[in-house]
Amino acid sequence: MKAATAARLAILWIAAAVGVLPLVWTACTAFKTDAAVTAGIWSLPLQPTLANFAEVAKSNFSTGLLVSLAVTAGAVLVLLALAALAGYAFAHFNFVGKKCLWITLMAGLFLPVHATLIPLYRIEADLAISRSWLSLVFLAAVYVAFNLSFSVFYLRGFFAQVPSALVEAAAIDGCGSLRVFTRIMLPLSVPALVVVALVDIVMIWNEFVFALVLIRSPKLATLPLAVRNFADDTGLAIPQTCAALTLAALPVIVVFLVAQRKIISGLTEGAVQG
């Protein structure tokens, strides 16, 4: 029995180490000079240098941070509003085309987004906004659209648990349905909204391919695009790249550590219930 426990813990420790060690290696390498990396890639940065981070500061990394912050904040706020309204509608009302719209929305969960890249690229070009800041608005709108499926799904599941009697009672009291929604449903749904917001923040903050196609100006690059610049086709400067990766991973790791229970449940519960 003792041996079994030891084996179990050993397997789990190895799994945990595999999860974290590549990140530890990246953070260590970020503090090394090129020469130190060549001398020994596994060695600790005994003479740490900040030169790599200075290199990152010279790139469009910091504007990328601000751009990603703005796009994520804007998209998530709109997303929450639209998804809460729609989730409530799907949970408590019957309406024309309900089933059809629901299936269309849920198909989005399994759709390869790459099938929409050329058309979206063309739409953006036709609007003649490819090089202006409006391309960021367009990108944010695309993020709203592509995260609606999960958000509506999750919130519908939440609103379905609210008894219809509560909705009807409030309606009889003379509340219009919009007031029932804003005064009763929204306050009730704050915990669910927080989960949806966290999942959407992670998804949009991390998103790469839409930004790659829709953002043409380097000044408007989101954080993932700015990070990707460190590894162009000609090769990659390992310590500088690692510095950029460390800085890019840090905010996500912090948010994850603070809110991991909610993030994990949002990302997995939806899947289990579906």
């Binding site: 799994a15 945990a16 180490a17 999860g19 974290v20 590549p22 990140l23 290696w25 990246t26 992670v202 903050w205 991390n206 790469f208 954080l223 993932p224 990070v227 990707r228 460190f230 590894a231 990659l236 790249t241 690692c242 990766l245 890019a248 991973a249 996500v252 790791i253 994850f256 550590l257 991991q260 993030i263 994990i264 990302l267």
Partner: peptide, 18 residues
Amino acid sequence: RTCVFLPYVLPTVVIALV
């Protein structure tokens, strides 16, 4: 659990380039 789950929430750019 945190260690095993962490990679999933990282940007794919970070995962690929790490």
